[in-house]
Amino acid sequence: MVDWGMIANLAGGALTTLWISGVGIAVGVPLGLMLAMTRVSRVPVLSQAVAVFVSVMRATPVITLALFVYFGMSAMGLTLSPIVAALITLSVNTSAFHAEIWRASIMDFPQNQSEAATAFGMSRFQAFRLIVLPQAWRASLPPMVNEMTFLIKSSPAIAVIGVVDLTRTASRIAAYTYDPLPPYISAAIIYAVVVFSLVRIQRLIERMIVHRYGVL
């Protein structure tokens, strides 16, 4: 009864979704940190530029951004393959959200701990590296994982610019079998499993952190 050929196809699409999303996250999180640090540092032109960038990114639909990157960049002379455009789109988009997440945990960092760090002779950079950052990333884990699930849920945007991800694979199968229900429902289940797992992992991590360090 089960169409293993279809499942295999969908698995291929799922893998594409996962690896592209994975790269997006791997680039977006540290990029977001750099943006947040720039923003918090209050360097004159740069921190305002970051603020504008973040504001614009957070208001732009991922699909619009994907079209902009894919078509817009080629008009500017830079021809990008759909996959590269997809990687850029997802990384850049998610970095804006991670920038806000990092910024929140860096900015409402308890002052008394920073004071202790200063009293012990740590420079601002040392205090950031040894005291603020280790706690900030642990405290940021829940909203970061949340943003990761959002990234995966907005990843079908890349199907529109030609990347054969899980959604596009499902569309293709539906198109040539004239039977849309199996591929789409299977794809939905696969996405749901991935997202559910991430949410589970997030809850586990949250509990572990509170258990070990208390509320950071």
Partner: peptide, 9 residues
Amino acid sequence: FQQFNLWPH
């Protein structure tokens, strides 16, 4: 310090 200010991590 009065509030100890240990680093929790």
